[in-house]
Design a protein around this nucleic acid. Structure first.
Length: 202
DNA sequence: GCGACGATGGGCT
DNA sequence: GCCCATCGTCGCA
């Protein structure tokens, strides 16, 4: 396990928009039972502070949102819709509540383990949603607050493939229809176009 | 391929 | 009580 591949904490101590863009093509890695399950990040969303009315921190600091106010580079994992876990990376300076939601990955390691649980489903569909990837990588609430820049926590992010701007689309974030403008339409969702073309060889 | 809808539980007003 | 940063399955084309 090449520790120098792991993205350091300073990467996350930046504007969530920068982090969200730069996380595309990076490799999300889960160590599970001594094996790696990993995939390239293909979709992210930035949530930026209490002013951003789509951000959970819009209501200020609560027990739930506390980790978003903590140091950057830690996981903010929360439960929603009564059945789903979602993974975020805390960004920006400590004390400022911002995070990047990891919405999708293209799985490239440990794919047998995922495939076994998803009979009849195409590989590109296994982890193409924030709750799906958490299930595939067995990420749940016990990862909330965990540092993502150390291999000792069994969940980290490594440098991966540089994704050129031509292959990145920026759109409005999804699932926030009730949020007022400008937040509802602001293009803070970043998507890799046709990820299977970039990584189909693996 | 696409739209409707039910499942299901913690956080917050 | 009401609100979800969702998913899988259903019906239909």
């Amino acid at each position: 396990m090449t520790t120098e591949m792991i993205i350091n904490q300073e990467f996350y101590r930046r504007d969530p928009l920068q982090v969200a863009r730069d996380l595309l093509g990076c490799r999300l890695v889960r160590a599970l039972n001594g094996k790696r399950i990993a995939g390239y990040i293909t979709e992210t969303e930035a949530y930026d502070g209490e002013e951003d009315l789509a951000c959970h921190a819009r209501a200020g600091r609560t027990p739930r949102t506390a980790v978003m106010y903590g140091p950057p580079g830690h996981a903010y994992v929360y439960f929603t819709y009564g059945m789903h876990w979602l993974l975020n990376c805390v960004t920006g300076a400590e004390g400022y509540a911002a995070a990047v939601l990891v919405r999708a990955i293209y799985p490239v390691e440990g794919i047998e383990a995922i495939a076994a649980r998803r009979p009849g489903v195409a590989r590109a569909r296994w982890c193409d949603g924030p709750a799906k990837l958490c299930r595939a990588l067995e990420i749940d609430g016990q990862y909330n607050g965990m540092a993502l820049f150390s291999a000792s926590n069994d969940l980290w992010i490594e440098k991966g493939t540089r994704v050129p701007d031509e292959l990145v689309s920026a759109t409005a974030r999804v699932g926030i229809d009730r949020v007022p403008e400008p937040w509802r339409s602001i293009p803070w969702r970043f998507v890799v176009r046709e990820p299977h073309r970039l990584w189909t060889a693996e």
